[in-house]
Simulated scan of single mutants.
Amino acid sequence: MSASFSKSITLKKDFKIQDDEFLQLRDFIYKQSGIYIGDNRKYLLENRLANRLKEHNLKSFGEYFYFLRYDVNRKIELNKLFEVITTNETSFFRNPPQIKVFQDIILKELIQTKRSKAQKYMHIWSAGCSTGEEPYTMSIVLHELLGSELPLWRIRITANDLSQSVLAAARRGIYSQYALRTTPPEIVRKYFNEEKPGRFVVQDSVKQLVDFGQINLSDRFQLKKVPRSDIVFCRNVVIYFDDEMKKNVINSFYDNLLPGGYLFIGHSESLHNISRAFRPIHHPGALVYLKEG
């Protein structure tokens, strides 16, 4: 048995979350972030927070809850908490059928419409951007579509996440081969510099279109500060929310979108029973939601 595996077993034995502790932490997390952890996922908190208890030499989850409420370092720890309770599994050009619809249909139509109106500006919002693969993918797609015309446009991609650590990684823009597993090889050669084998850095031209910042999707005041968008991406994020929170977030996206704007959510997600405000548009391999007007 490896030392690391043995250590993880010890942690699970040492730190058992009691029912009242689970309820305290579950409600605290919901209030702070809108992320809802169901009763059947008690093990998730126990497993993911064990190392946080060890880090601060705490003896119980009750002590950890007290730490989050009252310690002078509670704001720093809150970011650590967000980091461990969310999953940041992503990649460049994730779900290629969706990206193809974004590039070949939605974005091309949007560019043509704006050209016809002499409105060469665009805003796209990546809400839940994780370590940056999604907004950088959007930037690359825009470079591909606009080419030498790009400098004539005013384009911003606002990329937000709850976790400060993943945002820091996104700003660095350094990725492994695994993060590029769904990226066409010619795109890798064109928009990344391979510093050393298996270590790829996004080129500055791609970074320049993207603004990263922390946001809490449960905070309506923060959401209202995001510029009005032509397209909103929020993929595999609302799965963490309960029904009330889902409705609030989707309504905020609707309010943020300009008339004729589009919302992309995860390919396995749906707005069914969440919102009837959007018109679903079916494309081969992808479903997008239109704000009519």
Rank of each mutant, 00 (worst) to 15 (best):
residue 196 K to F: 03
residue 219 D to F: 09
residue 197 P to L: 02
residue 159 A to H: 02
residue 187 I to Y: 11
residue 158 T to W: 00
residue 183 T to E: 07
residue 161 D to N: 09
residue 217 L to V: 05
residue 216 N to S: 10
residue 228 R to H: 14
residue 231 I to T: 09
residue 205 S to T: 14
residue 217 L to P: 00
residue 157 I to F: 04
residue 158 T to N: 09
residue 196 K to N: 13
residue 157 I to E: 02
residue 167 L to E: 01
residue 226 V to N: 01
residue 211 D to W: 03
residue 200 F to V: 04
residue 194 E to V: 04
residue 219 D to P: 06
residue 190 K to E: 13
residue 170 A to V: 11
residue 182 T to I: 01
residue 194 E to D: 05
residue 218 S to Y: 12
residue 193 N to M: 04
residue 208 Q to V: 00
residue 170 A to C: 03
residue 217 L to W: 03
residue 181 R to T: 07
residue 160 N to G: 05
residue 166 V to F: 07
residue 168 A to H: 06
residue 165 S to F: 14
residue 230 D to N: 07
residue 231 I to S: 02
residue 198 G to P: 04
residue 164 Q to C: 07
residue 168 A to V: 08
residue 190 K to D: 07
residue 226 V to L: 09
residue 214 Q to M: 12
residue 185 P to M: 06
residue 200 F to L: 12
residue 206 V to E: 00
residue 206 V to K: 02
residue 171 R to F: 03
residue 186 E to W: 07
residue 172 R to G: 00
residue 182 T to P: 05
residue 218 S to Q: 15
residue 184 P to A: 14
residue 228 R to G: 04
residue 175 Y to T: 08
residue 161 D to Q: 08
residue 176 S to M: 06
residue 168 A to L: 10
residue 220 R to K: 09
residue 177 Q to R: 04
residue 176 S to C: 10
residue 206 V to P: 00
residue 194 E to L: 03
residue 190 K to S: 13
residue 177 Q to F: 02
residue 219 D to M: 13
residue 165 S to Y: 15
residue 172 R to F: 07
residue 160 N to Q: 11
residue 206 V to F: 11
residue 212 F to M: 14
residue 156 R to E: 06
residue 225 K to I: 05
residue 182 T to R: 15
residue 202 V to E: 00
residue 202 V to I: 15
residue 166 V to E: 09
residue 181 R to H: 13
residue 185 P to K: 07
residue 226 V to I: 15
residue 170 A to E: 01
residue 193 N to L: 13
residue 204 D to K: 15
residue 178 Y to D: 11
residue 208 Q to T: 10
residue 186 E to T: 10
residue 182 T to M: 13
residue 222 Q to H: 03
residue 159 A to P: 04
residue 223 L to T: 13
residue 211 D to C: 09
residue 229 S to V: 06
residue 205 S to P: 02
residue 201 V to Y: 01
residue 185 P to D: 09
residue 192 F to N: 01
residue 160 N to I: 12
residue 207 K to R: 14
residue 231 I to M: 11
residue 168 A to R: 09
residue 215 I to Y: 05
residue 178 Y to V: 12
residue 162 L to N: 02
residue 164 Q to M: 11
residue 161 D to F: 02
residue 184 P to I: 07
residue 203 Q to G: 13
residue 201 V to Q: 14
residue 173 G to A: 13
residue 185 P to G: 06
residue 192 F to D: 07
residue 173 G to Y: 11
residue 229 S to G: 04
residue 199 R to D: 08
residue 212 F to N: 12
residue 195 E to I: 14
residue 198 G to K: 01
residue 188 V to H: 00
residue 171 R to P: 00
residue 164 Q to T: 13
residue 204 D to V: 08
residue 171 R to H: 04
residue 200 F to S: 02
residue 165 S to W: 09
residue 179 A to M: 06
residue 189 R to P: 01
residue 211 D to E: 12
residue 220 R to M: 11
residue 173 G to N: 12
residue 231 I to G: 07
residue 163 S to I: 05
residue 220 R to D: 08
residue 213 G to N: 13
residue 232 V to Q: 03
residue 172 R to C: 09
residue 167 L to N: 10
residue 213 G to L: 08
